[in-house]
Amino acid sequence: MEAPLMHLALVGTPNSGKTSLFNALTGSRQKVANYPGVTVERKEGSFVTPLGRQVSLVDLPGTYSLRGRSPDEEITRDMVLGRTPGEAVPDLVLCVADSTNLRLTIRLVLELKRTGRPLMLVLNMFDIATRRGVTVDVAGLSDALGVPVVTSVAVRKGGTADLLRRTDEIAAQAHALTQHRRNLWQPLTIAQLRATQREADRIIAATVSLPARPDSWTARIDAVVLHPVAGLAILALILFVMFQAVFAWAQPLMELLSSGFGSLGQFVHDTLPAGFLQSFLQNGVISG
């Protein structure tokens, strides 16, 4: 018996690499349209998992929260909650995170958990985070959040292998794809959002290690030129020197060059006989 079509939704903050991951998974098997009644772009594609399961993937607009303060955020919220007419309820929500900056995405994951949808966190751009010295305890982060966590490098061949494997594992758990079709989700209040952010910060502090600030000459220079007071003073000094160089200090040199080319033109005029060559050199090459 053929497995039913699996519906996945990509959710993430802007600039998290969500679109790159969508392109890596779907390739040329994608179509672009607009959501009914709005001008927000709708991107949908398909792919096949290693075990041969057909998957439909929709790339939802970037959002920082499910509060829905803009048309894009409202569409993402309603799609996740299954409130969009004519759209399939996601069997699995993939929350894409920029591995170099997890703070806002972890809060979004905690909000998505409250919807009751099957959820997986995808740590995208994991190679860049590693090169920058960011260390993520993937297993510890998964335990702290209570959701599967995988790493991904969307721009590299084979960089989505772990994601595809885990998708097959989740799809094999039939109950995970049918639980909580209806939920009692309510938007968070400001106080609840702050509490959720504090919880996200606690989880990040326990599972993510940032590199120590290197004691290099570039770091010492940055400490001066990026200082909120000294940096502005240095910028003002550089601009003053540039304007002085152009409008004041360069004047004697400009006059010297002008006089030199004038003398050279006069020399050509006095040396060569009148004609095309004289005019070309004096009025064309030298004056030009």
Rank of each mutant, 00 (worst) to 15 (best):
M1E: 09
A3F: 13
L5K: 14
H7K: 12
A9V: 00
T13C: 05
P14A: 01
G17D: 03
F22V: 03
A24V: 09
G27L: 04
S28A: 09
Q30L: 03
N34P: 11
Y35H: 03
G37M: 08
V40P: 02
E44R: 15
S46E: 00
V48C: 15
L51S: 13
V55I: 11
S56G: 15
L66H: 09
L66D: 08
G68Q: 10
S70T: 15
S70W: 11
T76L: 07
T76H: 04
L81D: 07
G82L: 06
G86E: 07
E87I: 06
S99D: 01
S99T: 01
T100N: 15
L108F: 00
L110D: 04
L112Q: 01
L112A: 02
K113N: 11
R117A: 03
P118I: 14
L119C: 13
L119G: 01
M120S: 09
L121N: 00
M125H: 03
D127K: 08
I128C: 08
R131M: 14
G133A: 09
G133E: 02
G133W: 03
A139Y: 02
D143H: 11
L145Q: 02
T151K: 00
V153F: 01
R156Y: 14
G159L: 05
T160I: 07
T160G: 03
R165T: 11
R166N: 10
T167W: 05
D168I: 02
E169M: 04
I170D: 02
I170H: 07
A172T: 06
A176M: 15
R182I: 12
R182V: 03
Q186P: 05
P187M: 11
I190S: 12
I190M: 09
L193W: 06
A195D: 01
T196N: 14
R198F: 12
I204C: 01
A206E: 12
S209T: 08
A212W: 06
A212H: 08
R213D: 13
P214S: 01
S216C: 11
T218S: 09
R220L: 02
A236R: 15
A236K: 04
L237M: 12
L239I: 14
V241Y: 09
V241R: 13
F243K: 15
Q244D: 15
L256N: 05
L256E: 05
G260H: 13
F261T: 05
V268L: 14
D270G: 03
F276P: 13
L281E: 05
Q282D: 11
G284W: 08
